[in-house]
Design a protein around this nucleic acid. Structure first.
Lengths: 304, 304
DNA sequence: TATGGTTATGAACCCAATTCATAATTTCTT
DNA sequence: AAGAAATTATGAATTGGGTTCATAACCATA
């Protein structure tokens, strides 16, 4: 009766706190999850979730099942790693090109974990700027590109990671602090603080400012903390993924504002060659990435 | 891809050492298991079983998966016990009537385990002889009857346990030692050593000797070891389940012979009231019983 | 070489999980 | 308070994957 799919659903419910969000997380319909939950409850004669206003909460029974899920799913992945070792598919290289600078935040701990699990995989970050990172895959200079590119291309697989919102970051006393939502025009007279990458790699410029014919001043910094430091000391404003901001916003170090009525969103993909896509360690890397991101990053949305 | 059903199949393969026997064990066709195995192998790019002449053996990969199965399936049962506690279905009584005396062998350790898992269930053996044990269920004097009865009866559920062979047990120097198979006529002049129960509860008499019009002398003993002791000291022959004999036969304490060309087989069921059948602890008792029996008892066959 | 038993394979089938369509419910907004 | 928006529940329809069926291949033993 209980199946692994139920356990996956339960963890998704736990992580997202909502049936429909959990459904996206496991790539099923909200209806499917509703049926699953109903089946579980009637089987055990116990509710597993409980409405708590906006979001849902797991009951005691639900928590037991989530704890089980954690153990079981991890154990399965462990043995699958063992199997990969046995079939000698546990070695190779995973050279990562990172287009999204902020992603260092979650990639670093992920890489640490990965190194422990796959000691025989040569794990590297490919440094430097690359005009056409996907070409790097084809040329054999890298094994995976993490970025927003996802146009169909033969021989290449774009593994969807997640969608996230990019927020404008301001100093708490910034003149624009009063507006709940910022529009292109608001950026006319500000200095934009970005990572040192070309304009066409910056979503705010590409999708918002350029279409509106606005070209703000730019200043660059390598590290996210440096950017935030500059913002806080009123040298300009930045546009950063929402997830990395929570701590700084909570401590009133900076404030964050939505860009445009619907917000500015960006999709993240992990692209590989078709042939590397099937390697066990690559698959494990991807699921670990998704797991840790969805578990630790606030406000991200699963991608089809 | 990997599902709990695969894990169950793997353990069955491990326990039975044969695809078709494992199929019976998990109540599927041999074909279904064959497909499952094929799917597993092609998914992991590894064989999980290996032919070893008559029987099969698990490969290293298979052993990893079996180890996983042990952990995972046990953890699931653990949390299901927790859920039963939460839903307050973890208390009640389990008074067992045992028609098959030899079954004490496996029932005792089983009861010990059960007591640890379900401390709030009142566990008891209903002692004494009962002419109609199923009636005892209806009268509320017992909760489960372990025996061979399985005729349809409304309000009663007969949970199949397993089929086992009853072998004739002789002293090593017994005159009949030369025959590989014993027939009804061979029992004409022997003393039959049995448990102290009526004739119609003894399969050998009921199904073999009575139809042939043979009525051997009888002598009774309470305990299996006592019966074996009497057999070894040439006071007569006995008919006992094959599984309990292995140790004694291996040590040349007694010898065992098939009864009739196809052997004498008996089916074991656990009968309960319909209403008690759904209780979590009862279900757990049954699966534990089957698990331990199939894991520890040689030569038993699953029952539809 | 036959024979009984076990396993493999492809096609057909069937059920159960999912989706679809929609209703019911809740929450947010004005 | 009422209407709009979002979320969840439910029943019917669909579909896809796992199982069975039928049969072939294979393997040991006589």
């Amino acid at each position: 009766m209980l199946e692994l799919r139920h356990l996956r659903t339960l963890t998704a419910l736990h992580e997202t706190g909502s049936v429909s969000r959990a459904a996206k997380r496991v790539h099923l319909t909200q209806s499917a999850l509703s049926h699953q939950i109903k089946a579980l409850q009637s089987h055990y004669g116990l509710p597993v979730i409980q409405r708590r206003g906006q979001s849902i909460e797991l009951t005691e029974a639900g928590k037991h099942l989530v704890a089980l899920a954690g153990k079981v799913l991890e154990e399965i992945r462990e043995t699958e790693r063992d199997l990969a070792k046995i079939s000698q598919q546990a070695s190779g290289s995973l050279r990562i090109v990172l287009e999204c600078h902020t992603c260092f935040d979650w990639l670093m701990p992920l890489m640490d974990e990965f190194r422990q699990h796959w000691p025989d995989v040569e794990l590297d970050l490919v440094s430097g700027f690359h005009a056409d990172p996907v070409k790097l895959l084809e040329e054999g200079g890298a094994d995976i590109v993490i970025g927003s590119e996802h146009k169909r291309q033969r021989g290449i697989v774009h593994h969807p990671l997640f969608r996230f919102e990019i927020l404008a970051v301001l100093a708490p006393e910034h003149p624009l602090r009063g507006k709940r939502i910022l529009h292109a025009s608001d950026f006319a007279d500000v200095t934009l603080i970005t990572y040192p990458v070309p304009e066409d790699r910056i979503d705010l410029i590409l999708n918002v400012l350029k279409p509106a014919g606005i070209q703000p001043q730019r200043r660059t910094a390598e590290l996210t903390v440096a950017i935030l430091q500059l913002v806080a000391s009123r040298r300009g404003v930045a546009a950063l993924p929402s997830w990395g901001l929570k701590n700084y916003v909570d401590h009133d170090y900076v404030i964050a504002r939505r860009i445009g009525a619907n917000g500015l969103w960006s999709d993240l993909y992990a692209s590989t060659l078709k042939e590397t896509a099937s390697r066990p360690y690559l698959r494990d890397f991807l699921t670990t990435a998704r797991n840790t991101c969805f578990a630790t990053l606030d406000g991200i949305i699963p991608l089809a």
